[in-house]
């Protein structure tokens, strides 16, 4: 059995009357990438801030690398690396100096510090940018530098708060590649994200979090399987009645009424079920205008468990929280 690097029990946190985190418990195992997936304001950053000891724990308990975040905060800090949501670099120092500074404030001996900087600049392909001021790096390079810096002390766990927020898809995919490399090195990663595909692509396990509660936890495959093997999107002349008919059928696990279409979750093989299903609807005189077959995505999983889309009721668009320094 692998050891738990993070153990959280009954964590609660309020800002005034607002409960940001509501009785959360979970564990993260050594070597895995564990994601908190949820909309902005779901309480993800609060959990990260508590685990990284930037915020005092109010209720419940949490251990990181075996140390209690409430009573052994220094030991916790020595065990972890953190990449904050907002860029946190000194733009007036070079890439190398930003890393050197980190090594110094974490009391790494000089020799070890210098060796590690070289290794990590190589890993993140920033070797030829070592003497560039951080402000002259592109947004993606800045993020890679922050990743490299977070790994300086070979942390037991690397915390990433929205690692690719505000980046274009090419940059994001590039960052994902580095994260996979980092995982190969054996680093445990705990990250928060509101990008479905990010959680899907990278994580060994995902917790969907909404309104401060964990709704469900599992691997991407497990979560998708719970929705059935396949999804069918149907457009009909009367979606309401069609939905009622479908709900009575045996292989149908669930039906969601979207704006113009029906989303039907199936328990079995779509190729065998579909003809029978279409026939049943037609028999009631309802016309089917469009059929679309799809494997369940994380979007579907999210909608299924939270009852709403990720963008819905989202008070803060990601563009608003984009870094100031990245704007040229």
């Amino acid at each position: 059995m692998t050891a738990n690097v993070i153990e959280v029990n009954n964590l609660e946190h309020s800002y005034g009357d607002v409960k940001a985190v509501d009785d959360i418990s979970f564990t993260v195992q050594e070597g895995e990438i564990f994601s908190f997936l949820g909309p902005n304001g779901a309480g993800k950053s609060t959990v990260i801030n508590i685990l990284t000891t930037l915020r005092k724990i109010q209720k419940g308990n949490a251990k990181v690398n075996g140390y209690d975040v409430a009573t052994e905060s220094k030991a916790v800090r020595r065990s972890i690396g953190t990449v904050f949501q907002m860029p946190c670099l000194d733009y007036e120092m070079t890439a190398w100096e930003n890393m050197e500074y980190h090594g110094k404030i974490y009391s790494m001996p000089k020799k070890q510090r210098r060796e590690r900087i070289e290794e990590l600049l190589k890993l993140t392909e920033l070797e030829n940018k070592r003497n560039s001021l951080a402000k002259d790096l592109s947004g993606g390079m800045k993020r890679r530098l922050e990743l490299a810096r977070g790994l300086m002390t070979k942390p037991a766990v690397l915390f990433l708060d929205e690692p690719t927020i505000g980046f274009d898809i090419q940059t994001r995919m590039r960052i994902w590649e580095y994260l996979r490399e980092i995982k190969k090195e054996g680093t445990t990663i705990f990250m928060t994200t509101h990008y479905m595909e990010e959680a899907d692509q990278l994580s060994d396990r995902i917790s969907i979090i909404d309104h401060g509660k964990i709704i469900v936890t599992g691997s991407a495959a497990e979560l998708k399987n719970k929705l059935g093997k396949d999804l069918i999107y149907l457009e009909t002349s009367d979606n309401k009645i069609a939905a009622e008919i479908l709900r009575t059928l045996e292989p149908v696990k669930g039906v969601n009424e979207d704006l113009n279409s029906l989303r039907v979750m199936l328990g079995g093989d779509v190729t065998r079920i579909l003809p029978h299903l279409m026939e049943s609807i037609r028999q009631k005189g309802i016309e089917i205008t469009s059929v679309n077959i799809k494997k369940p995505s994380m979007d579907d999983v999210f909608v299924h468990y939270t009852g709403h889309g990720l963008r819905e009721g989202d008070p803060q668009k990601p563009e608003n929280s984009k870094d100031l320094g990245g704007l040229k």
């Binding site: 953190t82 904050f84 946190c88 000194d90 733009y91 980190h102 404030i105």
Partner: peptide, 13 residues
């Protein structure tokens, strides 16, 4: 506001 204070405050020093 724009730089390293958070990183410094999150460190063990």
């Amino acid at each position: 506001n724009f730089s390293l204070l958070k990183e410094t405050l999150a460190s063990p020093i």
